[in-house]
Design a protein around this nucleic acid. Structure first.
Length: 1019
RNA sequence: AGGCCGGUAGCUCAGCUGGUUAGAGCGCGCCCCUGAUAAGGGCGAGGUCGGAAGUUCAAGUCUUCUUCGGCCUACCA
């Protein structure tokens, strides 16, 4: 078609078509590793640091992934998001140094290593602790390397050669140091708390280390005689309740319901022969009882026994006894206790129960030695239900989680009443009663720990039952089967047992600032949260949480480097504590955690170490990671002490965000971060979480191989990551399509800019309206990008830029400018202006997208600005002059586009019926009341231009038709008339520009094309 | 079970303090071009906003209930 019918000349060669060898297809899986190599070779990370020297730091502090196993979609997305934030800030004028890190201690690794040793026939106890830890260290190091490679493959840039690890000796020492600082300020204390304990292995077990099996258990109903009512000493009267407990425990002794407990009737009704009944399946915990819990939402009744059946053995209860039981459960209790006739005397309100004190059921036991001679208070417990038992829950704070919680929550009030609120240490490592118990019980075992009957009931249950019978407080006994925790290894039952543990107090106020909780709350108020709801989430958690239990009875972790005296003193209270600490820290710094375990106490303590012992517990790994700000940010010279941003999954509100906040507030009195950004979890395309059993998992590795990391990055950038992020085949396809579109847009500009240099640039004042409009759009985009970076809204950045590419560039600007670009004389203002603007678009689009598409933007950049050791990532986002902004122009172009839409709507049916094929066959008459827009845009009157050597735009150029004329109208409204020129003898199709024109003097091409060809021939 | 959060076209996202026929891009269907060509352009069909009730002159936008999904609920990183 480009060959002219008359001259036979092929004008194609006279056109200025885009020229590039930039491939349309990316081949990402193959190409990406090559870019990684290049960046490695040119030392990009270090160059960035060098470039950014002296700039304001912007620090995203990495939350450490656990060094175990391959990365998954969640960790991949997390790292990609971090990378985008870091790169975007680096290019926004900051020094954005990113130092990745890993969490290396902890149970899962300890487990895997234990398994390994077992595979080699060595039980954990047979492996020396130092050898075991050395192996854990190796294991973690191996996975650090694996994950490091996987993260790097995603394009994440950072100090990979020098990451932080919680297990580096320096880190371990600093973690110890942090704990010692907390101890020194008195925020650390030793308490007791029930944990799952296996008497057989003599070790604490984690939830993941137990399995649930059926177990035959003795169930008993026991009564606790009511001994008194504590009128006027309602707990809430004496002590102001802790705010977080207010709802749960505030039951007022209101004026209207005031009861005179001194009244004889009252005593006869509610005290004399009255008992509260509990039910339990662990009789051996009865001696450890300290309270009975009830629930205000259950209705209780006072029942009098009128007649008893004859079970064939003596009963503790007698006719006339009165029992308080939940109404809903009375029938069960009556049946179990052989009560054949009874009377329900009255309701028993929770107001009343709240003020009741009970006797211990073993108070009058033979050989009690007065050890059960204390009041048993009644406490409100949320865990109490009327589903089973009696509606009352026997509470032994040393042997149950709920029991401990309730007891601990009421600590202040109990102490105000003069009740010893400490948790008794009633059982030793092998599951035998300690000397806290009367001598009658001391040494009795709950579970047999050896021999043929290992795992079966020991002597404790039987002796307790016997004692209860003697006291007349056993109402009933029986056998039942229940599902209960068993050790995974020995299969023996597990007991709940209070062991000495270390806590960081949420309330201890060492500096007059209200304690840890108050400080943390104040810091949360000062922190920025994206999304804002994160503030509330972590806020309620901090407000509600109990003291921080930081000790673990494990091997692979940082030791609690405290030395304790028999009398309870800590070495940190000694005058020479600093010297001792220095020796401890030196040892850990030199030998890692083994430095503590292997150290001789005398060497640490100096002369007098009599009566002192080293603590052998290790720290909760959350404490480790809570210290990353200390041993990474505060230790490294290339990072500030506080981070600008922590960016993790929303689960970290109770994890790292919180542990870091608490640790930092405890030691430094402030949060380690200024801002917190959270993302949701990655789920499948239907919104379900990924799991191996559902078979809906997608691995980043597979995506890298099949599509390229770039697609993963684009997916992350285009998602609303503040909620759950879906991924699936169709979603990946969407990202792939978007990638192609972006790539082709850039490719087109590369081709169009072939041979362009700054010398060809045209000043904005000389540009056609269309070009000035593009600059206006760039100015708008600049604002969107800046705002997006500031608020971490990458989907906004991406979708805005993407729409710009498709709607403004591809379908509008490029489409219109093809004619000028291909056909205008080389030096025409219009063509030069177009290329000038394209260079601006190219530069900005590439730079703005480079934090997201780090590989492709480098490829595109290097294509246009080839260099040996340069990188797009070393550039800064360019300034955009405000002079580019032109609101009036934008309005006018908008009107033109509306006109264009009208034209297209009319052309379309003609195209469908074959009247018109190419839009250049069309000639359009616009009947409109005004033609100001055309005037405002300074459009040429005809489409073959007043000055063919320097063409200016006509309306026809905007509509991509051959000719367009305005016909002024008086009436309002606008309508178009479209005709075809292909059949019109008066018009000739220009074989060069394909436009239809009225040929004069036998010209075969339009005047504009003629000039261009002349010039081309001359050159 | 409880706490927090979310459910807008096939997909990814907009819809501010409640107010005209709920928007965009992609995808899809049809058509055109063949000088961005495993590209480009045009037109078009798709949602009543998870469901129900309520408040209001008016609700995707407020309230309640319900359903589905996600995270968390102390030795698990």
């Amino acid at each position: 078609m480009s060959t002219d019918a008359q001259t036979g000349r092929d004008y194609r060669e006279t056109l200025f078509l885009p020229q590039t060898d930039f491939p349309m297809r990316a081949g990402l899986p193959k190409k990406e590793p090559e870019w990684l190599e290049r960046w490695e070779r040119i030392g990009l990370y270090h160059k960035l640091r060098e470039d950014a020297k002296g700039r304001t730091p912007y620090t995203l502090h990495d939350g450490p992934p656990y060094a175990n196993g391959h990365i998954h979609m969640g960790t991949a997305m997390n790292k990609v998001l971090k990378d985008m934030v870091v790169r975007a800030h680096q290019m926004s004028g900051f020094d954005a140094n990113y130092v990745p890190g890993w969490d290396c201690h902890g149970l899962p690794i300890e487990w895997k290593v234990e398994e390994e040793f077992r595979g080699k026939g060595r039980a954990k106890d047979d492996v020396p602790a130092s050898e075991f830890r050395a192996r854990c260290r190796e294991y973690a190091a191996k996975w650090v390397d694996v994950q490091k490679a996987e993260f790097k493959r995603l394009g994440v840039i950072g100090d990979w050669d020098n990451p932080y690890l919680t297990m580096r000796f320096e880190s371990e020492a600093r973690i110890c140091d942090e704990l010692l600082k907390i101890a020194k300020t008195g925020q650390l204390y030793r308490g007791y708390k029930p944990v799952m304990w296996s008497p057989v292995e003599q070790t604490a077990l984690a939830e993941a280390e137990v399995e649930y099996h059926d177990r035959r258990a003795t169930q008993i109903y026991v009564r606790f005689p009511v001994c008194a009512f504590t009128l006027g000493v309602s707990y809430s009267d004496k002590t102001a309740p802790a705010p977080e407990l207010e709802t749960m425990h505030r039951v007022q002794w209101s004026e209207s319901e005031a009861i005179d407990t001194a009244d004889q009737d009252f005593e006869d009704t509610y005290i004399k022969d009255v008992s509260v009944v509990i039910w339990t399946t662990t009789p051996w915990t009865i001696p450890a009882n300290r309270a009975v819990c009830f629930s205000p939402s259950i209705s209780y009744g006072l029942y009098k026994i009128e007649a008893l059946g004859d079970p064939g053995f003596p009963l503790g209860q007698t006719v006339g006894d009165k029992l308080i039981v939940a109404d809903k459960l009375w029938d069960n209790v009556a049946k179990a206790a052989h009560i054949t006739e009874f009377t329900r005397l009255s309701d028993v309100s929770s107001e009343l129960l709240k003020h009741a004190d009970l006797d211990h059921p073993l108070k009058n036991m033979e050989g009690a030695d007065g050890k059960f001679d204390f009041a048993i208070p009644m406490l409100v417990g949320d865990h109490v239900t009327a589903e089973a038992g009696t509606g009352f829950v026997h509470t032994a704070p040393s042997h149950g989680e709920d029991d401990y919680m309730v007891w601990f929550a009421n600590k202040d009030r109990l102490e105000a009443r003069g009740i010893d609120a400490s948790v008794p240490n009633t059982m030793d490592d092998s599951g035998c009663y300690t000397d806290v118990m009367p001598s009658r019980f001391e040494g009795l075992d709950v579970i047999r720990t050896s021999g043929k009957k290992r795992g079966q009931d020991g002597k404790a249950n039987a002796e307790v039952l016997k004692a209860l019978v003697e006291c007349g407080n056993l109402l009933s006994r029986g056998i039942m089967t229940l599902r209960d925790a068993h050790s995974w290894r020995s299969k023996a039952p597990v007991i709940r047992r209070a062991t000495p543990q270390w806590f960081i107090s949420m309330t201890a106020d060492h500096d007059g600032r209200g304690g840890l909780r108050e400080k943390a709350k104040a810091e949360i108020a000062k922190t920025k949260f994206w999304p804002e709801r994160g503030r509330n989430r972590i806020g309620t958690m901090v407000a509600d949480r109990p003291d921080w239990l930081i000790s673990r009875q494990r091997s692979w972790g940082v030791p609690i480097t405290l030395i304790v005296h028999e009398d309870g003193r800590l070495h940190t209270d000694l005058p020479d504590a600093d010297a001792i600490n220095a020796r401890i820290l030196a040892a850990v710094n030199e030998h890692g955690v083994d430095g503590w375990f292997d150290a001789d106490i005398a060497d640490l303590m100096g002369d007098d170490s009599g009566g002192w012992t080293k603590v052998t517990d290790i720290l909760d790994v959350w404490f480790d990671s809570g210290c990353t700000h200390a041993f990474c940010l505060k230790e490294r010279d290339d990072l500030p002490d506080r981070a600008d941003l922590y960016l993790e999954g929303s689960d970290q509100h109770r994890g790292w965000f919180q542990s870091s906040l608490l640790e930092s507030c405890a030691v430094y009195g402030e949060a380690p971060y200024k801002g917190v950004l959270t993302h949701g979890f990655v789920v499948d395309e239907k919104g379900y979480k990924m799991s191996k059993s559902l078979g809906n998992t997608i691995s980043p590795e597979d995506l890298n191989k099949q599509y390229g990391a770039e697609i993963v990055r684009l997916w992350a950038a285009s998602s609303d990551f503040t909620e759950e992020v879906k991924i699936g085949k169709e979603i990946i396809q969407t990202s792939t399509d978007a990638y192609r579109k972006l790539r082709n847009t850039l490719r087109y500009m590369i081709g169009a800019l072939d041979g362009y240099s700054e010398a060809d640039a045209i000043d904005i004042v000389d540009m056609p309206a269309l070009e000035r409009w593009v600059l206006h759009r760039l100015h708008e985009l600049d604002a969107v990008v800046k705002d997006g970076v500031e608020n971490h809204d990458y989907k906004k950045i991406f979708s805005t830029l993407f729409n710009f590419c498709t709607v403004d560039l591809s379908a509008f600007y490029f489409d219109i400018r093809k004619d000028a670009l291909y056909c205008d004389p080389l030096g025409s203002t219009r063509r030069r202006a177009c290329r000038t603007v394209m260079s601006y678009i190219f530069e900005r689009l590439t730079l703005w997208l480079s934090p997201i598409l780090c590989f492709t933007m480098e490829e595109v950049w290097q294509q246009r600005f080839p260099s040996e050791d340069g990188s797009v990532h070393m550039e800064q986002f360019p300034d955009t002059p405000d002079s580019w902004h032109d609101a009036v122009l934008a309005e006018n172009i908008k009107s033109m586009r509306n006109l264009r839409d009208l034209a297209n709507e009319q052309i379309e049916p003609m195209r469908k019926d074959g009247t018109i094929k190419s839009s250049l066959e069309a000639i359009i008459s616009v009947f409109a009341p005004v033609t100001e827009i055309a005037d405002d845009l300074r459009l040429d009157e005809n489409s073959w231009y007043t000055d063919p050597s320097n063409p200016t735009d006509s309306v026809a150029d905007y509509l991509i038709v051959s000719h367009c004329m305005f016909v002024p109208q008086d009436n309002s409204g606008i309508f178009l008339q479209v005709k075809t020129l292909s059949e019109n003898a008066a018009y000739t199709k220009c074989p060069r520009s394909w436009k239809y024109f009225k040929a004069e003097n036998g010209a075969d091409i339009t005047p504009r094309d003629a000039v261009a060809v002349q010039q081309w021939d001359a050159s």
